[in-house]
Computed example of a mutant assay.
Amino acid sequence: MNFWQFFGFVRILKESIQLIPKNGKIMGLITIFYLLFTSIFFLFFKFTSDSLLRDMFIKESFIPISSINGSSLSSLLSSINQNFKLVLAIDFSLIFSYLFISIFSTNTIILISSISYYNKTLNFKDLGIMIFKSCKRLIFTMFYTTIIVIGYFFFCFSMATPFLATSNIYDFSMVIIFVIFAYIIYLYLSIVWVMALVVSIVEEGNYGVMALGKARKIIKGNEMKGFILNILFNLLALFIFWGTQIIIKKWNVNNKNSMLILVNGSCLLKVFELVNYTVLYFHCKKEKGEEEIIELQESIEYSKIYNLPLIIDGSN
């Protein structure tokens, strides 16, 4: 591996920064909507969930007092159980809402970055058509990648379980070393998983297992670039978290506002990360001699031709 191959991620970062202003209005609006909806969902679910939990804890505090009266105790337990079910329902709704926002934002940002890479202009109508066409492929691919991530997590957990069962300091230190090692491996393996998302959006015929296989072929020989990018973005995420903690301590920001800062910072970082992976995808394609016009552009041109008015030749 030569010097440039190792530091090739710098070129990816530079081109990603230059790519963002292209189709900047659409990218800016999508980013604003992404931040806005994420913040609204976060505030709504936090407020509702906290209110229900607070009400549930208050009712629990009355249980010892009401224990003499059986009917009062039964009523309190029933109310606590109902609140608990509502909290679970809200939490699951939050998960599915965030999943929907994540799918939409991932799809849109990669699509805009892909078109911008070829210096093509994009309007909301073309973007809507492409989102509709690629959404199903992305969902399939995200389903498979999620299963793989969960499987990897449980595998690592099962490997660390024997060490967690003991209270030995040596075993505890081994667990920490194992967790760090497992996370480094995860950062390396996840290159293919994230690249598969790009493949499923950009290439019409690849999704699910096929997208994972194609991503593995595309990234081959450029794993170090993706690995360093993963490390960089994880370090940036850590800095965002630390920065939020510093803001809390220095300016006495309340917990809700600090979490809102953390959520928005993480969203902006995700946008930039997706742009970088899209640029990395095209770099890998070029290195393998696959510089043909991608299916996305063909879809745009088709949609434009399809929407032209039909001209009937009346000369005959």
Rank of each mutant, 00 (worst) to 15 (best):
E203F: 03
I103L: 09
V179W: 09
S16G: 05
T141C: 02
G151T: 06
L236H: 08
S173P: 03
L189T: 02
Q82Y: 15
K285V: 00
S78E: 11
R54N: 14
N2W: 11
F47M: 12
L122E: 04
L88H: 08
K220D: 07
I294C: 11
S258T: 01
N230A: 02
L189F: 13
I184T: 01
L76M: 05
K59A: 13
V271P: 07
Y186K: 07
F33R: 01
F233H: 06
V271F: 02
I30T: 15
I247V: 04
G208Y: 03
L262E: 03
N81R: 12
A211E: 08
R54L: 11
S299M: 15
F181M: 05
F163L: 14
W251S: 05
F62Q: 12
D313P: 02
K249G: 00
I294K: 09
W193Q: 04
E223H: 09
I63Y: 09
K288E: 02
S102A: 12
E60W: 14
N69Q: 12
G151L: 05
E204F: 10
K46N: 15
S102D: 14
E223G: 01
M130S: 15
D126F: 04
V149Y: 11
N123H: 08
L53W: 14
L73Y: 08
N206D: 11
S61P: 12
D91Q: 10
L232V: 04
A165Q: 09
R137P: 05
E203I: 08
L127Q: 02
K217V: 14
T121N: 14
